[in-house]
Structure formats: C-alpha cells, structure tokens
Amino acid sequence: MTVTDVPIATPSPVLAAARRRGRGLAPVLPALALIVVVFVIPVLALLLRSVLEPEPGLQNYAAFFASTTYLKVLGNTFLVAGTVTVATVLLGFPVAWFLAIAPSFWSRLLFAIVILSMWTNLLARTYAWMVLLQRTGIINRTLMEIGLISEPLPLINNLVGVTIGMTYIMLPFMILPLHATIRSIDPAIFQAASLCGASRFQAFTRVMLPLTASGIAAGALMVFVMSLGYFITPALLGGTSNMMLAELIAQLVQSLLDWGLAGAAALVLLVITLAIYMVQLRFFGFGQARG
C-alpha cells in the first residue's frame, strides 16, 4: 500500500552535473545516530554476549547444537515456516490470479479484504483464531454438531494451530507481490499461446508458471523468512512443548536469564534470515522483496 505522487520525473539534468561529491551527509546524521545507538549497538552487544557469557568461548553454540530440545525447536521452526510457505503459495496464487482478471467489483472487494486483513492489528487477528480453534470453539462445535467428529480436535496449543494462524497472517504478503507479477503479464501472450496450439493446461504450465516463477519465489522467500522469526502468533496459538525459535529466545531471556544462549539463538536466527535475504537480493532485487 504505497501512496504515489505527481508524475514520474527523471533525475534533473539541470543539476545532475553540478553535484559535487561528498555533499548532503548532514541531514542523514540524526537517523544514523538513532540507528547506530538504538539498533546496531544493542544487537551487536547481544550477539557478543553469546561468545562472552558466562565465559569467553563458543560453548553457547556447542550447547545449542548439542541439545535435542533446541534442535527440535529449530526443526519446529523450519517445519512451520515451510508448511506456511507452501500453503500460502497454493492459496495465494489462485487468489492473485483472480484479483488480476476478475470483474472490477469482485476483484476490488477481495483486494480490500486482503488489505484490511493485512493491516488489522495482529493481536486482534490472533485472538480471533484463539476463539475459533479452542476446544469449545466454533470449529470444533460445528464439526461435532454435524457429526463429523465425536471428540473435539486438538487445534490449539500445538503446531496445527500455529500453522493455521500463521498462514492466515502471511497470506497477504504472498498475494500482493504475486498479484503485481501476474498483472504485469501481457494477456496477448496467452492468445499467442492459444494460436500456437497450446491447451489451457499447457499454457498454464509452459507460459504462466515460468512467467510468474520469480514472483512466486520472491513471495515464498519473504513469507518463509518472516515466519522463521515470528513470535506473537506461535506464543499465543502454540503450546509450551512445541516452541519455535523466537519463543525460545524470549524464554531464555525472560525465564532463564541465560543471555549467552539467547544471544547464540539470536545469531542463529539472524544468520538464517540474512542468508535468505541475500539469496533474495541476489536473484530478485530488493524492490520485489517488499512487493
């Protein structure tokens, strides 16, 4: 949702040549000071503690990777992030497609729903799923009333609940970039494919999918990496026995006060996140990453 301005202009030819190198740093300084003091230093300090506390060395990393508990947390994190990514691609692609071609009223309506959902307070949305998924919640009660199940399904306080809630939250981040990708395709390409003798299925697999592959990949990487570090939804919809990485970091700090190990876990999360962003930057550029 970016609000755009005035007609696009190329950089001024009048002044371009007059620019001298090394100008214009001063106005950036307040922002730079803020980011360095309130972002760079604290984060580096946290990461440093992972190799300094309780004593200098890599024992925190050794402990992290030796513990089956922590490895299971890492496994859970990847499992949930992977499932959410696949689910958002499968659901998001048809929706993005629909948005690109459906009659204006319907596509606008659905688009408004997607945007509204994206910007609705995260806690409000998570609350809705807590209500829906609880033992005596609407979903379980409805299923029991129509006789599909006799016992309430365990939908909350486990990874099922987390996955359902996170898919809900991540869907807009998949739909919006995919929508932009599909809209940028010239419809005449499919008329050409049709004249060349391609069936709908062939046109889909041989033309549409290749043309949207980069959009799908960009959206998938973004959803995956956002899911990896998510905290609120897992904390409220998940259970204590099946944590994700972000929850673990929080718990290490809040309950166990183990700053060294928390720093190590944070670094693991950071490295994975940045590595995936590097892949994204390398192949798709930053602009597309944000949709």
């Binding site: 604290p42 503690r49 970091i249 929080a250 700053w259 944070a266 999360l269």
Partner: peptide, 19 residues
C-alpha cells in the same frame, strides 16, 4: 536504515531490553 524492517523483531526486542 531499512534493516530493522527485515530483521526478526524478537532479536531487536531482546537486544533493546538488555541495552
């Protein structure tokens, strides 16, 4: 300047809490 947007918030939260 854009990094705080892509970094997992929990890392920043823990780091700022300590700081």
């Amino acid at each position: 300047f854009l990094t705080p947007m892509i970094l997992p918030v929990v890392v920043l939260a823990v780091a700022l809490y300590a700081f």
